[in-house]
Simulated scan of single mutants.
Amino acid sequence: MISDRQLVEDYRSGQQAGLERLIGRYRDDLFRFCCHLSLDRQEAEDLFQEVWVRVLRKLEKYDPERPFKAWLFQVTVNLHKDRYRQWKKLRERLTLAWTDDNSKHREPGDGAPLTEDFLLKKEEFLYLEQCLRTLPKRYLAPLILFYYEEFSYESIGEVLDVPLGTVKSRLNQGKKLLKAAMGGRDYEAING
């Protein structure tokens, strides 16, 4: 498999295919992350496209010693912060439940019957998503990066541009707030 570093170098040297492969490699992860940050599908799609536009403009500044995915997610977080500052009413939307399209848990395909277990899991997942939206922003991104994207503490620190101790503190406090929002239920039991 061609490394991210090589794909960036290919694009920098004029080969469009390098960028296309990078986009293909990170499309799903990035879009899912945009959905978690944005609160609705249309905003997520807009953010997703804006991220790639910004990446194109800043690709010359990318340090190939850093993991590309962490840099890409940092660009996403920074762009989202910029958009968040502009949209004062975004906070009101935090209480809205997500639509099924924003859930990373999809319904069975090929006309398979929906099982009771699947429906219960889906209901629990949507409840979890709703509870996540009640958290202050400073705790939401670290939790999403840790649980959904499986980033290490160090990578979360890079993405959010905060020290390792801050990452640990925000994750710890975020878990406590999430548990309280869920009425004492354990997140891992639902997400498991």
Rank of each mutant, 00 (worst) to 15 (best):
E150T: 13
G24H: 01
Q42V: 15
D46P: 06
A181F: 06
P108Y: 01
D46H: 07
R32F: 11
Q15G: 02
L59H: 07
A97V: 02
N191H: 14
G109C: 07
R138D: 13
E149H: 10
L177C: 00
L94Q: 14
C35D: 01
K122Y: 13
M182E: 08
D100I: 05
R12T: 10
G184Y: 01
S152M: 10
V159D: 02
G109H: 06
F68R: 05
L79C: 09
V77W: 09
L56P: 06
G165M: 07
G183W: 04
L37D: 06
K168G: 02
G111V: 13
P163M: 01
Q130A: 00
Q16F: 09
K179D: 03
Y148C: 09
M182Y: 05
S38F: 05
F73K: 01
L119T: 14
Y127P: 00
L72M: 10
G157Q: 04
D28W: 01
R93D: 12
V55P: 02
H80Q: 08
P108S: 07
A44K: 04
K176Y: 03
R170W: 12
L19A: 02
G14C: 04
Q130S: 01
R27G: 03
Y187G: 00
D4S: 14
W87D: 15
G184T: 07
L72E: 04
D161G: 01
W52A: 09
A189H: 10
K122H: 13
L96A: 09
R185A: 13
E150Y: 06
G174N: 03
R93L: 15
L59Q: 08
I23A: 05
S3K: 13
S13C: 05
L177F: 03
Q173F: 04
D100F: 00
D110L: 11
R138A: 14
E149R: 07
